[in-house]
Nucleic acid binder design. Structure first.
Lengths: 132, 132
DNA sequence: TCTTGACCCTGTACTTGCTACAGGGTGCAT
DNA sequence: ATGCACCCTGTAGCAAGTACAGGGTCAAGA
């Protein structure tokens, strides 16, 4: 018998998060013991590990839900899976591009800082429209 | 007289977001007209533009609040500003590194996809622990 | 003058992905 | 029998907004 705490340890997902996943229907409600404790099985460990890996790869819970559904239907073509992964890759690439632009802007702002007063601070100046 | 809609247009921040900023105390509640409309001035346009630029640079609302406070005290040293900007740069760089790792993983997953069935899908396989 | 339509007001609930209580019950060892 | 670690439930909170619902206001056109 695997309790919630053990499931948490086995998968690296916090107890509260497991409850949250159960609440939103990502995990099926497990059997209960006589004392009303959740009793998980190896299936649950597997499923939750799947969720964790997908989350680590940046998939949204909604995408994870879809991936789980797809994974259950083993005879189906994996085009849909590929599509989700590609969408995720694209999102990641866009995010990286955005952050690189940000990094450049921040970097040049910081470089100009000469440690004077706020009045002639380049960073504040760059943020302010004309005169603060 | 600048209404909320005009302030939104002038700054590119949505009306609802302006209300939200007012609610959390980032923007001072403005004067009201006889008909209970908010009446903004150029100050508000400037302040909100400042917020927008800072948000665009990825600063949190909390950081923005601090930057606004700092910007108001023009005689002060701008070390604190520099510090916030550096912290933000560091956060951005870390995020970029994370996303690059993610991108590599996703990319290699997708490359292996041979458009077969779910049963031999590499992506599902990589997510599942041993056997799904 | 009336009415239409664009704007404004308020409060509240929803989003994503959790996290953190409070206030109690269970189970095992000492 | 009592202490402690663990479990249970419900609820509220975080960032940073977004989206209604159900009204009020204002200016222009018929």
């Amino acid at each position: 018998m695997i309790t919630r705490g053990k499931l948490a340890k086995a998968t690296g997902i916090k107890i509260e998060t497991i409850r949250f996943y159960e609440k939103i229907g990502l995990l099926a409600p497990p059997e209960r013991t006589a004392g009303n404790y959740r009793a998980y099985g190896q299936d649950d460990v597997d499923r939750l590990s799947f969720v964790r890996r997908a989350r680590d790869l940046g998939f949204s819970l909604d995408q994870v839900r879809t991936l789980l559904d797809l994974a259950d239907d083993r005879s189906r073509s994996c085009c849909a899976v590929d599509e989700i992964a590609r969408a995720q890759l694209k999102a990641v690439e866009e995010k990286i591009a955005d952050l690189l632009a940000l990094k450049r802007e921040l970097g040049s702002l910081i470089e100009q800082c000469d440690q004077g007063t706020i009045a002639d601070c380049r960073i504040i100046g760059a943020l302010a429209p004309a005169e603060v």
